[in-house]
């Protein structure tokens, strides 16, 4: 994507310029071509491919092991490694027990959605407004506030657990979904504001100024000028936050009660009081992994674009 774009700009330059300019342009063009060629050859060398494949295999082995294990009968799981069971026998018994047995994951799967969707939407909404203010509204102490806000990112969330729980108990919302939503929103906000602010700052000021000259207010600028441009950034942060909230155990464990537990907490309980049912854990892990996988694969286009867009725009 980016190579043709650069080439075309250099071509435009060479067409516009006079003799000297043209030579310089050609020189520049050949340098860029050289660099891209060497990069391409380096990337497509058989050695690089071999290393990439090796790394990919190494990274996948644990997941494959989990997958194989999750389909093996209980006694096989307990008595031998998954590599001895590649040829079967296989069973879906573990999935059945994990999903609908006593303490099964079914209801908690729904809880995870109830927790995750607002926990993604709330910080995005707040962060968009905050990022707009930090990027385009000039007010006193803006930079200080922005740095202070981002500094919160360094505070580990573990130190906040007990004081937060205390506050929720005092407010009487402990054990409801609100405490989890608010916690996730709080812990997600600094990064969200930072990301969206940087992205908004990269949008050419001329665009915003032109809209302002045309008589648009903050609301119109935000919704009609900036929001369409922000979709990749929102999607990128949305995926981040979704994965983080869906996979979170600590916040879920601390702030929920029996009825509002997310699936991660339920999986941790799946092993039973004395850990005797641990053969169900692999099946439970895969049930929980499906959703993040689907979300990631269906949105990965935005994900990559959002990351790249933030870095090359301007």
């Amino acid at each position: 994507m980016s190579y043709p774009a650069i080439e075309s700009t250099t071509l435009v330059e060479t067409a516009d310029g006079g003799g000297d300019e043209r030579r310089r342009g050609r020189l520049r063009r050949s340098k860029i071509a050289e660099r891209s060629e060497s990069a391409a050859s380096r990337l497509s060398s058989p050695w690089a491919s071999a290393v990439a494949i090796l790394v990919a295999i190494l990274w996948t082995i644990p997941s494959v092991g989990l997958l194989v294990t999750s389909f093996r009968p209980e006694l096989d799981i307990r008595r031998s490694g998954w590599w001895t069971g590649l040829t079967g026998p296989f069973t879906v018994q573990n999935y059945e027990t994990a999903w609908s047995g006593s303490g099964g994951l079914g209801p908690f799967f729904v809880n995870s959605f109830v927790i995750t969707l607002p926990a993604v939407l709330i910080p995005i909404t707040i962060a968009l407004l905050a990022a707009y203010a930090f990027a385009w509204i000039d007010f006193k102490g803006r930079n200080f506030l922005f740095v202070a806000m981002f500094a919160l990112q360094v505070v580990p969330l573990q130190v906040a657990l007990v004081p937060l729980l205390k506050a929720y108990v005092d407010m009487g919302i402990n054990g409801t979904f609100w405490s989890v939503w608010i916690s996730h929103a709080m812990f997600g906000l600094p990064l969200a504001i930072f990301l969206l602010h940087n992205f908004m700052k990269d949008i050419p000021p001329a665009l915003v100024e032109a809209a302002r000259v045309d008589g648009a207010g903050h609301v119109k600028i935000f919704f009609q000028v900036l929001l369409p441009l922000l979709v990749p950034a929102i999607a990128a942060f949305g995926i981040f936050q979704f994965l983080w909230v869906w996979n979170d155990l600590l916040v879920g464990l601390t702030f929920t009660d029996t009825g509002s537990r997310p699936i991660t907490v339920a999986i941790a309980e799946l092993a039973g009081s004395r850990g005797g049912q641990w053969h169900l854990l692999t099946a439970g892990a895969f049930i929980s992994m499906i959703v993040p996988l689907v979300v990631f694969f269906s949105l990965q286009r935005y994900f990559v674009r959002g990351l790249l867009a933030g870095s090359v725009k301007g």
Binding site: W99, S100, G104, G106, P107, F109, V110, F113, V291, V294
Partner: peptide, 12 residues
Amino acid sequence: LVLAACSGGDGG
């Protein structure tokens, strides 16, 4: 998915 999971959850 949410709906299907709901029905599954209800079943459980």
